[in-house]
Structures are given as structure tokens and as C-alpha cells.
Design a protein around this nucleic acid. Sequence first.
DNA 1: CGGAATCCGAAAAGATACTG
DNA 2: CAGTATCTTTTCGGATTCCG
Lengths: 140, 140
Amino acid sequence: MKSTTEKERAGAHPAPGGAEQACPIAPVLDIVFSRWTTPILWTLNEFGRQRFVELHRTIGTITAKVLTQRLRQLERDGLVVRTYHPEVPPRVEYEISELGRSLAPIFATLSDWSTDHLPLVERARRDFDAAAERAASHRP
Amino acid sequence: MKSTTEKERAGAHPAPGGAEQACPIAPVLDIVFSRWTTPILWTLNEFGRQRFVELHRTIGTITAKVLTQRLRQLERDGLVVRTYHPEVPPRVEYEISELGRSLAPIFATLSDWSTDHLPLVERARRDFDAAAERAASHRP
DNA sequence: CGGAATCCGAAAAGATACTG
DNA sequence: CAGTATCTTTTCGGATTCCG
């Protein structure tokens, strides 16, 4: 048995479900597009090397525990490089790797899509909710 | 109070946390890159209009409940169009919308990245695990 | 057939306290 | 400073049942 908590090891990925057969990009989701991995990668890609606290403050709402977990996973997947400086007080710096930098165009495309189409999504939501509201009032 | 289950309404999105400030593409994650939304969108984009059971079989492992939930969300966000045919037995068809189709280039880019870099990720994982293994054996 | 309602277990995330 | 350990809370997906 290892000393680390078995359930929270960096390698404990969710589940190799069956959607992977039907959708070729499903594996990428677990690697890049989890709740916090994308903001982390985006921040490191945008602002360059940062130490733990800086990263923590930049992202803002994430807890230190979750930040550590996600950073470990990203380090294991080779998207982030962790550098430990054995000083007092200790200093740890994170930077995006070459492999991680290869995601930059995807982030850029996503950002463009966001500015172009996000308003349409919000519009669609309002329409949908309004229609549902009207339908509900017709049969109480 | 509405008649639908409050907790499971299509509009019940997770949480407008604070990561949205730091990362401009965070909002897109909840819309497009949830566990099942991507396979659903990809399938509809690839194979065209399908009815509920077809979609269910194509994706394979998803349960009907979750498929319904995600389809509702996608419909609300305007990425998917639902067509109800009042017949016996009832027939419902889903197809990707114009807005949903605008995601196609992103999916293509992601697919390319996957084939190019996924092996490197797996390689990095093996290296990381091997290094961790060696480090662990040095201090038992 | 295409759902909706309900109950349930696993997993992620959050909060807090503590350490080298 | 940079985590780890532990506990609690929230969320998600799965299984089952029932209905028009």
C-alpha cells in the first residue's frame, strides 16, 4: 500500500466508460476540460510561470486542496511543469509545458467562439424559459 | 412552485463561481464540455438527425435519464433542436442546430490535437508514475 | 416510444485544521 | 509557503418504476 490516499491519487481518473468508442474526442475532456483544469491551463498559458499562491490568487475561488489535485493531474499528464525550490520558506513554481502550450490555439478558438456565440446561447435560454413559462401557465 | 422537479430543471446550471472572471472560456465549459454533452453534440453533428432511441444506442452507455437531461440542456442552450411528432407510438427527433454546428471546427481541432498529442500524454503518465514509483521505493 | 419521478451510491468539491 | 489529512457538503450519474 502506498502512503498517499488511494482515492485521491493523481492517477485516479474517473471511468473509462463506453462513450469513448462513439466519440473520438471524449478522452481529451477528462484531460483538459474539467471544471478547474481549463482555468489553470489558461492562466499559466496567459501569464506564464507562477508560484502556488499566485496561481491560487489569480484563479480566486478554488481551494488549495483542489488546486493541488488538479495541478498534480496536469503535471502527470505532462501539461504542466512543477519546479520545487528547496528554500526556506519553500518555493514552488508552475509553468505550462510544451505539450500544454500546444493547446493554445484551441483556447483561442474557444475564446472566439465564446465572444461570437455566447450571446446567442443566452438568448436561446431566455426564449426557451419564456416558452416553458407560457406553456406552464396554460395548463395549471 | 413549478411542477417540474426544482433540482433537475434544465436551467439548473452548476454555479456561477469566480473562475469566470479569470478565464474567459470558462462559461463554454458548462455548455459544451460536460461529461455527455460533447458525445451527444458530436454524434448529432456527425450522423445527423436521430430519434431518441437511436441516439441512445449510438452513444451506448448513457442512461435514458441522463440523455434526456443533457438533451434538455442542449435544447435550452439552442445547440440542439427537438422535434416532437404526435403519433402513436410517439416519435421525437433531435438534430443539431445552426448554433450547434458552429462548434464543428472546434471538434475537428480537438480531434486533431487528440491524435497528435494523446500518445504524448500517455507517455508522460507512464514516466510520471515510474518516477513516483522509484521515489517511493527509496524511502519506505 | 419517450420520457418523468423517485431513490440511491460514488465522486468531486468545499471547509477546516495541521505540518515540514 | 506549499501543501496534507480529515470531514462535510454538493453534484452527478445509474437503476428502477410508472405514465401518456
